[in-house]
């Protein structure tokens, strides 16, 4: 009940997307992002747009939730759109007032950029956040990057760090809230005054928070040692990831879509855009 901040926002489910292997989901997301950036005209955008809608249907997640994930981006989207509308020069002048001029190409470009950002964020949240637990994602990443361990990259350590970070984020958020309340009860004021004053007001929160985080880290290190943790070597996993026919199908379809976009770019007419 204290955790009103939903971190990770995984939505329990057993849809096609939920069941995909996290490793392949990462591949899928990367492929989709590449595809979006390859899109050059309206038709290819329609294709990736349809793909996105298809993914939403496959995930069985309420579209409202996906729209909600876009909320924090509204400002960025607006700013990019405005910059494109006012700064991009084209051939078809629509409106001019003094130095300000708006071209059809500008509006069109702004629109496509907005679509691109929206699709990018919506699909990655859908595939990697809403239908994948952070833990599964970390596991997927670790196993996907496992070959890199051979060239002495600390893949296991990185993934253990991620696991622990994910585990402790809610705990530390709760702790921050507690400390803030404690200092507020002693008359600390975090919401009024100049920037410098507010920054100073953070000291009574940050110091106890750091001290407690270090204490936790120390205790956790001892606990891990007691539980026979000696690093990644010789370690096995309970949940071994298994790819299935689903993963193969999903990746093949995504590759096909990518190819489709390339074909459309090459042969279909339409407005091409520049970034």
């Amino acid at each position: 009940m204290k955790n009103s901040i939903a971190f990770g926002q995984y939505c329990e489910g057993s849809s096609f997307l939920h069941k995909l292997d996290p490793r392949w989901k990462l591949v899928l997301a990367v492929l989709y992002i590449v595809t979006i950036f390859l899109c050059k005209n309206v038709f290819s955008f329609v294709l990736v747009g349809v793909t996105a809608v298809g993914l939403v249907l496959l995930s069985e997640i309420k579209p409202v939730l996906i729209l909600r994930s876009l909320k924090p981006l509204i400002m960025i989207i607006c700013i990019t759109a405005v910059i494109n509308i006012f700064w991009l020069k084209g051939e078809t002048l629509l409106w001019q007032f003094g130095p300000v001029s708006i071209y059809l190409e500008g509006i069109f470009n702004a629109l496509l950029i907005v679509v691109r950002v929206v699709l990018l964020v919506a699909v990655t949240t859908l595939v990697l956040t809403y239908t994948t637990t952070p833990i599964a994602l970390t596991d997927g990443l670790e196993q996907l990057l496992a070959p890199l361990a051979r060239i002495k990259l600390p893949v296991h350590e990185f993934s253990m760090m991620m696991t622990i970070a994910l585990r402790f984020i809610p705990t530390l958020l709760e702790e921050t809230e507690k400390i803030m309340n404690a200092q507020r009860a002693r008359g600390a004021d975090f919401s009024t005054g100049s920037l410098a004053k507010r920054a100073k007001a953070l000291v009574p929160i940050l110091i106890p928070l750091f001290i407690s985080a270090f204490r936790r880290a120390e205790e956790l290190a001892i606990a891990m040692e007691c539980r026979c943790y000696t690093g990644g070597e010789g370690r096995t996993r309970m949940n071994v990831l298994h790819s299935s026919y689903r993963d193969v199908v999903a990746v093949l379809v995504m590759v096909a879509i990518l190819a489709g976009v390339l074909v459309i770019n090459r042969f279909a007419p339409g407005y091409s855009i520049s970034m």
Partner: peptide
């Protein structure tokens, strides 16, 4: 340990229970 929060390593209950066994290198 005393503080239940500072000894659980994994986010999901069963994965935390598995942590020690995984360190021992047992088959899955």
């Amino acid at each position: 340990f005393q503080n239940p929060d500072n000894q659980l390593v994994a986010t999901i209950v069963e994965e935390d229970v598995a942590f020690g066994c995984e360190n021992l290198g047992l088959p899955s």
